[in-house]
Design a protein around this nucleic acid. Structure first.
Length: 445
DNA sequence: TATGCCGGGGT
DNA sequence: ACCCCGGCATA
């Protein structure tokens, strides 16, 4: 279950970002690799604040070579926002116009007022209109959903396709929802052996799911045979929504932004037993009946393009391939001792755990200073807001460090919690989670 | 024993 | 999503 405490530590690999090219323009791409320099010893709080982490960015444009960047150089979810960014003339940007995302080119950027003149490529008429926009109204990354919608001319063709063959392929992204639908109860121990036998395709989906499950399980770990068991399957699996089932499913986000203020919090809890260590990524083709997998993104995209989608129209870079593969982290047989936590979590400033620690220490500092009677202004650490509606393609669910021996339950922290701080009589001051007897979100542990 | 919070249930 | 609570683990 998703509680405020249980926060996703997803890998940022696959996150879409924009980065500066040699010509001074920003280009979109995705994080392909993270290089963390020698980890600080025993810094296991996920606040490995080394500034030297390098992110390899693979650009969408084939003309651009992959390059390494520091996090401060990247623009995207988990990295810096648009504030302070200076855009040159000719910069390709995206903005919402008449309720849909449109492409535009920067004509002029006034660095003082952060106002831009942009020329919009309207999908519906050929007239190129110029708009004045504020910097925070524009994005460097296109949102996948809108991009498909905005791309009207190809979209109809695609819709037609969707009705036919290709739709079947997408159907593998969805999840069979029969007996679980509407029920909050966990399913029976095996979701594959009840009511599915008569339908081949559903069976295949189950098999595919099993394959994917086994891909993400360590060979040493117990097989996920007890699917209904307490910790094998996320409770989210019982939801009728397919996308929560397969976190890697690169389907477009249902809403423009699904991020809550509790962080980009997802159910990461107990998708797998906690002890699992994950150290490499494979890209698995999700095309129906295809089991192709490879370890490079470009290879899987080439496979999908060549084998399943067929040649693309020239100049068409809709990244349709992305819909037909998923990224899986594969567990290593032995835990790699060198892997830094940083590789598996978002940049520290975005990590809610880290933020909570900051807030927690801030609050406690505040309390103690108030008790000492010499309160002084304290600046609250603020993380910038990512205005782009784009959500990263691959939300990875990763096991937490978890206490050994007692999986599923974290040791009680000694920190003051709302109950202690405010007392029962000021219960209305408690954080919501405390009120609900959930893990306190106000005072970090 | 008091507290923290997980898991589950109700609306 | 929001709210409630039984019950377990732990300080």
């Amino acid at each position: 279950m998703s509680t405020g405490k249980r926060l996703a530590k997803r890998s940022i690999i696959g996150t879409r970002v924009a980065a500066l090219g040699d010509d001074g323009l920003y280009y979109s791409g995705m994080i392909q690799a993270v290089k963390t320099p020698a980890p600080f010893p025993e810094n296991n709080n996920c606040i490995n604040l080394t500034p030297n982490t390098r992110y390899t960015v693979r650009f969408d444009s084939v003309k651009m070579k992959s390059r390494e960047y520091r996090d401060a150089e990247l623009i995207g979810p988990g990295f810096r926002g648009m504030t302070g960014v200076r855009l040159k003339e000719g910069q390709r940007v995206f903005l919402t116009y008449n309720g849909r995302e449109v492409r535009a080119d920067v004509k002029h950027h006034d660095y003082d007022t952060d106002e831009l003149r942009v020329q919009v490529h309207s999908p519906t008429n050929e007239v190129r209109l110029e708009l004045k926009k504020k910097l925070d109204e524009i994005r460097l990354l296109e949102s996948r959903k809108s991009a498909r919608l905005a791309d009207v001319d190809t979209d109809f063709a695609r819709l037609a396709d969707m009705a036919g063959d290709r739709r079947r392929a997408s159907a593998t992204i969805e999840v069979p929802s029969h007996h679980m639908q509407g029920s909050r109860k966990r399913g029976p121990s095996s979701s594959c052996d009840l009511g599915y036998g008569e339908r081949d395709d559903q069976m295949n989906e189950c098999n595919a799911a099993l394959v994917l499950m086994s891909l993400s399980c360590s060979p040493n770990s117990p097989r996920p045979s007890a699917w209904g068991g307490r910790s094998s399957v996320s409770p989210g699996a019982s939801s009728s929504s397919g996308s929560s089932w397969r976190s890697g499913t690169p389907s477009p986000p249902p809403a423009s932004s699904s991020f809550s203020d509790e962080g980009i919090a997802m159910d990461y809890e107990e998708i797998h037993p906690r002890k699992k260590r994950i150290n490499s990524v494979v890209f698995v083709c999700t095309w129906r009946g295809c089991t192709y997998s490879t370890n490079t993104c470009s290879a899987i995209e080439a496979h999908i393009r060549n084998t399943h989608l067929g040649p693309k129209k020239e100049g068409d870079s809709d990244h349709e391939e992305e819909f037909y593969y998923t990224e899986r982290e594969v567990a290593a047989p032995a835990p790699p001792p060198t892997l830094s936590h940083r590789d598996m979590c978002r940049p520290p400033h975005e990590d809610p755990e880290y933020q909570r620690q900051l807030v927690g220490s801030f609050r406690q500092g505040l309390l103690s200073t108030m008790q000492n009677g010499n309160a002084r202004p304290i600046s609250i650490p603020v993380t910038h807001h990512w205005a782009n509606s784009h959500s990263p393609k691959h939300m990875r669910l990763t096991a937490a460090g978890g206490s050994p021996g007692s999986p599923g339950r974290r040791p009680r922290s000694d920190n003051k919690k709302c109950r202690k701080v405010y007392g029962m009589d000021q219960r209305d001051l408690w954080c919501t989670q405390c009120k609900w007897k959930k893990a306190c979100t106000r005072f970090g542990d």
